[in-house]
């Protein structure tokens, strides 16, 4: 796929440019996992150059290499992304895995900006917390860890998270009695407090 080390040329470069441009425009895209990983890496590079150099001619050369719709994307980098990522030193984008694609069964992933508009991890955590509150259940350790990851960085994030929880309850769980399929699992005798029994791997026939 890549002929040269540390250099992306030809078809790969064009594809990456298109993906980067649409990623900066929409803040989250769905691709296969290998492409997703590249987008994450490249986004870090772009934001770091923007932090160091701004819109100097040298930095502009970097943007020219990697973005198609230059005026709009550079404007967005300057106005929105730079103030957003001032307190971070990297890790500006995140990749979450999805089910394989229908048709060719390629492993998919969704790339999202951290602290962005369409942050799936953030809203998913908000949704789980909303469900647990509506059902009157305690927040489990995994969800707690996820909420902590999502809200760290600045104190405003915690307030934003509370608003998100409210929105999620309105949208998905308005009536607690109607929540289906997500009650606590019955505990089995031999499971050691867990909801499921440990299942050994299948034997070869």
């Amino acid at each position: 796929m890549v002929k040269y080390i540390n250099r992306i040329v030809g078809k790969d470069a064009i594809r990456l440019n298109k993906m980067m441009t649409s990623f900066i425009e929409h803040e989250s895209i769905v691709t296969t996992r290998k492409h997703a990983k590249r987008v994450v890496e490249r986004f870090d590079q772009i934001v770091n150059t923007a932090k160091r150099q701004g819109v100097t001619p040298d930095a502009y050369r970097v943007y020219q290499k990697t973005l198609n719709d230059l005026p709009n994307s550079v404007k967005k980098i300057q106005e929105i992304l730079l103030p957003r990522y001032q307190s971070r030193n990297g890790g500006y984008a995140r990749m979450l895995r999805l089910e394989p694609r229908l048709g060719d069964n390629a492993p998919q992933a969704v790339v999202e900006m951290v602290d962005g508009n369409k942050e799936y991890k953030f809203w998913m955590a908000a949704r789980v917390v909303a469900r647990l509150r509506q059902q009157g259940l305690p927040v489990d350790s995994k969800t707690k860890a996820q909420v902590q990851q999502v809200t760290q960085g600045s104190p405003e994030r915690a307030d934003k998270f509370e608003e998100a929880v409210k929105e999620m309850t309105e949208r998905f769980y308005p009536v607690p009695e109607k929540i289906q399929g997500s009650g606590p699992l019955p505990k089995k005798a031999g499971s050691g407090g867990k909801g499921y029994k440990h299942c050994p791997p299948p034997k070869m026939l």
């Binding site: 989250s28 979450l96 895995r97 999805l98 089910e99 969704v110 508009n117 369409k118 799936y120 809203w123 998913m124 949704r127 789980v128 469900r131 995994k142 969800t143 949208r171 998905f172 289906q180 399929g181 997500s182 009650g183």
Partner: peptide, 28 residues
């Protein structure tokens, strides 16, 4: 954790993913 259905480990549930996506689309 959101809908209680079966899903693969370390992945997002596709049903919840599409619901969230339509939610974002409506917001925009």
């Amino acid at each position: 954790p959101a809908c209680g259905h079966v899903k693969r480990m370390h992945t997002l549930c596709m049903h919840c993913f599409y619901e969230l996506r339509s939610f974002f689309a409506k917001k925009t």
